[in-house]
Amino acid sequence: MRIAIVEDEINYQVQLIEFLRRFEKDRGETIEITTYSDGDEIVENYKAQFDIILMDVQMRFMDGMSAAEEIRKSDSEVVIIFITNAAQYAIKGYAVDALDYVLKPISYFQFSERLNRAVDRMKKRETHFLTINVKGGVKRLQISDIYYVESQGHKLIFFTKEGEVTAAGTMKELEKELSSFHFFRAHKGYLINLEHVEGMKESCAVVKGEELLVSRTKRKGFMEALANYWGEVIK
C-alpha cells in the first residue's frame, strides 16, 4: 500500500508515521510512506501513485482542500482522509470526495478506525489502473474501461467508457504493460480488450459496435485467446 502524508507540522508527521507502522503490524500490511510538508509539493508532478493520502487541511502555501481539488483532476480513485483541527473544514471534504477526516489531537484508535475503512474500500474496489502521459500531465484510466487502443504515428488513442483519450507512447510498451490483462494485439494498429469483444464479423472483431480488422497472421491466435477468455468468463 502506498500512503502519502501531507502535513506541515513535523510533530504530526512523526506521529502519523508511528501510527502507520503500528497499523502495518496490526493488519499485516506492507506500507510504503511518502511525506510532503505542503499541498503544493504533492500536487507538483502528481502521477496518481498513491492508494491513500492523509492530508492536513491548513497549510502555509497550498491548503489541503485546494491540493485535493488539483489531485481529483487526474485521480478519481485515491482515498483522501483529511487531518484537521476543526470539523467544519473537514465537512467540506464531500466536494472532493474525501472518505473521512481525523481530528487533531490524533488518537491511534480514531486513526486506525478511519484507516481500516479506507483499506476496506480499496480492497473492495480491486480495480486496476493504467497511468498514461497526456498533454500537460498524466491521466489514470481504469483498465476494464478501455475498449481498445489505436496507434497513430507516435501517439496512442485510447477508446474508453469516458470517450477518447490521446496519449504519448508506443504500442510495444503498452502491450507489455497490459500483458497480464486480457488484451490482444490483433493488428499492428490495434490493441483490443477481449472483455469488450462482442463477436466477429468476417475478418473483424466487433468492439462496442466498431469493426476492427484482425490481421491474417494474428487471426488464429486472436480466436484462441477470445475462446479462452469467453470460457473463463462463462465458468
Results as ranks from 00 to 15, higher is better:
M65I: 14
M65R: 00
S66K: 15
A67F: 07
A67D: 10
A67N: 13
A67R: 14
A67L: 09
A67E: 12
E69V: 01
R72I: 01
R72V: 00
R72Y: 00
K73L: 00
S74F: 00
V78W: 00
V79L: 08
I80G: 03
I80Y: 04
I81T: 01
I81E: 02
F82E: 11
F82S: 02
I83F: 05
N85S: 15
N85H: 02
A86V: 03
A87Q: 06
Y89H: 15
Y89N: 06
Y89I: 10
I91Q: 08
K92M: 13
G93W: 08
A95Q: 15
V96D: 01
D97S: 14
A98P: 05
A98T: 07
D100I: 03
D100F: 04
Y101S: 06
V102M: 13
V102F: 07
L103N: 08
K104H: 07
P105N: 09
P105M: 04
Y108N: 12
Y108W: 08
F111W: 04
F111Y: 05
S112H: 12
E113Y: 07
L115S: 05
L115E: 04
N116L: 09
N116G: 13
N116V: 09
R117H: 10
R117G: 12
A118S: 11
A118G: 02
D120I: 13
R121I: 04
R121Y: 10
K123F: 07
K123A: 04
K123G: 06
E126L: 08
E126W: 07
E126C: 11
T127Q: 14
T127N: 13
F129H: 01
F129D: 02
L130C: 06
I132M: 00
N133Y: 09
V134D: 00
G136P: 08
L141W: 01
L141K: 03
I143K: 05
S144L: 10
D145R: 04
D145H: 10
D145Y: 10
I146Y: 00
I146P: 01
I146N: 05
I146W: 03
Y147I: 15
Y148I: 01
Y148F: 15
S151F: 05
H154P: 07
K155Q: 11
K155G: 04
K155D: 09
F159W: 09
T160N: 07
T160R: 05
K161E: 14
E162I: 03
E162V: 01
E164Y: 07
E164T: 12
T166A: 13
T166K: 10
A167D: 03
A168F: 14
A168N: 14
A168T: 15
G169A: 09
T170R: 11
M171I: 13
M171V: 10
K172R: 14
K176V: 14
K176L: 15
L178E: 04
S179T: 08
S180G: 04
S180F: 02
S180W: 01
R185M: 06
R185C: 13
R185N: 10
A186E: 07
A186K: 06
H187N: 09
G189T: 11
Y190D: 08
Y190V: 06
L191G: 08
N193A: 07
